[in-house]
Simulated scan of single mutants.
Amino acid sequence: MTAAGPLRPDLARELIDRATKAAARRAKRVRNQLDAVQLGQDRHAEHADTKVLRRVLAEHDWPGHRLVGIEAARAAWSLALHADDDADFQRAATTLLERAVQAGDARVQHWAHLFDRTLVNSGRPQEFGTQQLLTTNGVELCPVRAPGSLDQRRATVGLSPIATGLEKVRLRCAQDHQVGDCSTVVLAEVA
């Protein structure tokens, strides 16, 4: 990104707008505030968001800090993170995001979250402990590979110890949700 701003401010605006609307829909869905018609509309909007992000990735690779700015790169990450209905796309996005991280154009924490999400969605244990379940019993960590070395792996990607990360998620959920009123959803730490 230059001092003048991102190379593609138009693309940045679109990504931020889509991610903002998606977050609002997710919040309503988690709170069980959507009727059947709205749930269908939500699902359609998620597919549209994934389709747009797929086009962006095809045209530009990962939309990193230089292309769209920090806020829009975070928006792209959020859209990819929640593209749970398209596992192939999510894995491809993880690869492109990893390349952007290696080029210094994206945050490694975003890659760690997306990488964990792809593992959880494929039924495998996550590496960095970024994915939790919100159930009627509260926040529970999704299965983790080698839990004894989890904090060491988290440190390599700039994440706080797991106890701190879980506490942040629990506090956010306590503020945002009536846990007993929620169905099971996968959460991610805020990055």
Rank of each mutant, 00 (worst) to 15 (best):
R55H: 12
L79V: 04
Q132L: 11
A36Q: 09
A87T: 11
H60I: 09
S149V: 09
D88C: 13
D42E: 12
A191N: 12
A103E: 13
S160A: 14
E14G: 08
D105L: 06
C173A: 07
S160M: 13
P6V: 07
R66G: 06
P125E: 10
R99D: 01
K168V: 02
R154Q: 00
V56W: 05
H60L: 03
L11V: 00
D10C: 07
T118N: 03
P6H: 09
G158E: 00
L7G: 10
T95F: 10
H177A: 02
R25K: 11
A27L: 13
V169G: 04
D10S: 09
L11N: 00
Q178R: 15
E189Q: 15
T135Y: 05
T135S: 09
V52G: 04
V139M: 04
A93P: 07
P125K: 15
T156Y: 02
L67G: 00
L187I: 11
A36M: 08
D151C: 02
K28N: 02
K168C: 01
A103V: 10
V101C: 03
H47Y: 04
D181S: 14
V186Y: 10
Q109A: 06
W111D: 01
E140T: 05
E46H: 13
V185R: 14
G123H: 07
T135F: 02
T164M: 09
L79S: 01
A191Y: 12
L114A: 03
Q152F: 08
D17K: 14
G138S: 08
A106T: 02
A92G: 13
H44S: 09
A174D: 03
A48M: 03
R31T: 05
Q90K: 15
E140D: 11
L96P: 01
F128A: 00
A103T: 10
L67I: 04
G69N: 03
Q109N: 05
R54P: 02
A106W: 02
P147Y: 10
G64A: 04
R8M: 04
R29C: 01
A93G: 12
H65K: 14
N32F: 00
V186E: 11
R91W: 13
E98M: 14
K28Y: 00
F89E: 05
E189I: 15
K28E: 01
I70C: 05
E98T: 12
E98C: 11
R26L: 07
S183F: 11
T50Y: 05
D61M: 12
S149L: 10
R13I: 02
L171N: 12
R8P: 00
R99T: 06
A72R: 02
R55Y: 04
G148T: 01
H113I: 11
G123Y: 11
G158Q: 09
F115H: 11
A112Q: 01
R153F: 03
H60R: 12
E140A: 08
L171K: 15
R153W: 02
A36V: 06
Q126F: 11
L114N: 00
L34K: 04
L97C: 08
L150Y: 07
A19F: 06
R91H: 15
Q109E: 10
